[in-house]
Design a protein around this nucleic acid. Structure first.
Lengths: 190, 190
DNA sequence: CAGTGCGGAGAACGTACGTTCTCCGCATCT
DNA sequence: AGATGCGGAGAACGTACGTTCTCCGCACTG
């Protein structure tokens, strides 16, 4: 029973994730999620008692998935400088997915940030998590001012994420990597 | 008569701009715009025959306003390097407005980009206009590879715009300016 | 003064959505 | 076999929205 519930939750989240990310949160009705997940409406509501809860679960899942993918790219490298640049390799790979639509948190924030404090908070937490990860990488690379370097790298990353979404290619990630390299040259010089 | 129409259009656009930008496009009903603009629903529909048309007019207006504000900041400087950095001064001033909510085009794209080709196109055009402006500034500054430099600067700008929106302060613009300065050091070195 | 047409206020219509309710089959327990 | 309760399908309900329609007052024409 518990295992069925978990499996059903996963099915619903799979469907919700795909639909929310593709069309935006508000544009997707509970009925579309029901149809896509093959679960009954009653069951859907006992798994996620409201759309807000489902949205939150969707964002949680995106956050975890994002961190996982990022870590995989970073941990494939050993050299501290390469580990920083791996962030942009990740963004490149990500932006090449056919269903790529930018950052789910930025999109959700744009839709609901001013009306849903919870969504605004989750977006902030997601970005803060990314910031901490970059600070860690910057420290490991021996940056003089890791916070500052991390902020600079974040700006390039966010820029690449949204520009890829709007213009459709993966070039922005490549360009961001170049720019990051320039900034690393300047910030790791001792 | 024609002048009244123009004035009424302006009133409607003022109201629509404030509401769309603040709450997102889909969350604002025509009735809210009617109430805020003080115009009758009939008149509203004869000025803008559908919500889609109004959204388009809203984005057009944002684009013009944005370019105007950017140009004002850039033209206040004469030194080519300062003119590039003025872009970030503009972003700083903009992000300090109390109702600041990031880039209207990114927000609209997140909501409607996958369902409205027109919105996707307008977002792309807006970003492309920005890109061309930066290329011009980069050329004037004597950059070796103006396109590349412009792309790097765009990434920092977009990053600053969205990060300010989510975390709420103006720090990102300051940090973007610093990073831009580093990149200029590397790209204008001859 | 009677007639005419335009503009405003808001009711009305059709649709879509979030959420709840009804009905019914079916598996399980005695 | 009869009773019981859970799950599925989808109807139903209330609300909100985009858009259109109705009604009415009022300014202007003869």
């Amino acid at each position: 029973m518990a295992i069925d519930t978990a499996a059903a939750k996963q099915q619903v989240l799979d469907a919700a994730d795909a639909l929310f990310y593709e069309r935006g949160v508000q544009a997707v009705g509970m009925d579309a999620i029901r149809t896509a997940s093959g679960v009954s409406l009653k069951r859907l509501y006992q798994l996620f008692p409201s759309k807000d809860v489902l949205i939150e679960a969707y964002l949680d899942r995106r956050n975890i998935l994002w961190e996982t993918m990022l870590n995989e790219h970073v941990e494939a490298k050993t050299d501290p400088r390469d580990r920083i640049l791996a962030v942009f390799d990740f963004l490149y790979d990500w932006s090449q997915q056919r269903d790529y639509r930018g950052c789910a948190f930025i999109n959700a924030f744009g839709e609901l940030g001013s009306v849903s404090p919870r969504v605004a908070e989750l977006a902030l937490q997601h970005k803060e998590g990314f910031r901490q990860a970059l600070i860690g990488l910057a420290k490991a690379a021996g940056a003089e001012d890791p916070d500052r370097l991390a902020d600079h790298l974040i700006l390039l990353s966010e820029g690449a994420i949204t520009r890829s979404a709007i213009s459709g290619g993966s070039d922005p990630a490549l360009r961001a990597r170049e720019a990051a390299s320039l900034i690393l040259d300047a910030s790791l010089r001792h």
